[in-house]
């Protein structure tokens, strides 16, 4: 069945390489761009040969954007910090609220529980602008506009349904007998939740957390409407590179590399953990 001739193996290798190149090329190109000046980027025809420079990174980290016409300050590092704060904060809050909720939905079927769970998911269906307009008015009135707290609250629209629905599935996959066994052994429901349900759903919680983090990190519209300059994350902050004197491709590339670095690192780290978690296996046995 799995018998493969050397030619087949060779062809499969090539096919895999093509796929990897296709998906990795944009990232590779961005990294190359971030190491070039605007001039070398824009020359025609494009060339892979250039003298690498860290100028773009230096400018971004130092917070000064020098173009051939003018020099202006940019707050990219602040934006990066905002992104981290907002994403970590939102995911933390969503996990804190979502995991127990997911457990409740998975284990305790009560009248209307399906409806409540579905309503939570339906927030994801609505166009964000629909929610945003009334929200921004409310937020102005109660003083939540342009605060980290307000943004993290709004970000729950993204994170909470995701965590709730993914983690719920993982909880449902754990045999209730495991929890019964632990309870009967003499442990309270809280310690059963902590010692049995949480560790066994760990990989699922990690996956949901990671996804929520990426969605929060990539969010643009909420922050654009609800945050002013000092609370803006990188997605909004990147707009600053579109200046009156042109688009700073090199610096945009460097900014992109810096802004995808955390999610990329997290994904790579979590992947190892996810695989470990899945190979734990025998959850039902």
């Amino acid at each position: 069945m799995d018998h493969m001739s050397p030619i087949e193996r060779w062809l499969r290798g090539i096919a895999l390489t093509v796929v990897v190149l296709f998906f990795m090329f944009p990232i590779f190109w961005i990294v190359l761009m971030s190491l070039q000046t605007n001039e070398t980027i824009l020359r025609s025809p494009p060339s892979m040969v250039f003298e690498p420079t860290f100028g773009n990174y230096v400018a971004i980290i130092a917070g000064r954007l020098d173009s051939n016409v003018a020099s202006m300050g940019i707050a990219f590092m602040d934006n990066l910090w905002n992104s981290i704060l907002l994403s970590v904060g939102s995911v933390a809050v969503a996990l804190l609220l979502g995991v127990p909720a997911a457990y409740a939905f998975a284990r305790h079927k009560f009248r209307g529980s399906e409806e409540v769970a579905f309503t939570l998911l339906s927030f994801r269906f609505a166009p964000p602008l629909l929610v945003l307009l009334p929200l921004s008015l409310y937020f102005q009135q109660i003083g939540l506009a342009n605060t980290y707290l307000g943004l993290i609250w709004v970000y729950q629209l993204i994170c909470l349904p995701l965590i709730l629905w993914i983690v719920r599935g993982y909880f449902e996959d754990i045999s209730p007998d495991l929890e019964h066994a632990y309870r009967i052994a003499g442990h309270s429901w809280l310690s059963t939740f902590r010692r049995i349900a949480l560790p066994l759903a760990g990989p699922g919680i990690a996956a949901a957390g990671l996804l929520a983090f990426i969605f929060a990190w990539n969010n643009f519209i909420f922050a654009l409407v609800l945050a002013s300059a000092d609370k803006q994350p990188v997605t909004v902050g990147a707009l600053a590179f579109v200046t009156a004197s042109g688009i700073q491709y090199g610096q945009i590339a460097a900014a992109i590399v810096l802004s995808i670095a955390p999610t990329l690192a997290l994904a790579l780290y979590a992947q190892r953990y996810l695989v470990e978690g899945l190979s734990l296996g025998a959850v039902k046995g």
């Binding site: 019964h180 309870r183 009967i184 442990h187 309270s188 049995i196 066994l200 734990l280 296996g281 046995g285």
Partner: peptide, 18 residues
Amino acid sequence: APEHRGIGMAFQNFALFP
């Protein structure tokens, strides 16, 4: 509550904590 009933139980599918 189950934990206060003073019971020991063995399950058909073993239900060992993996």
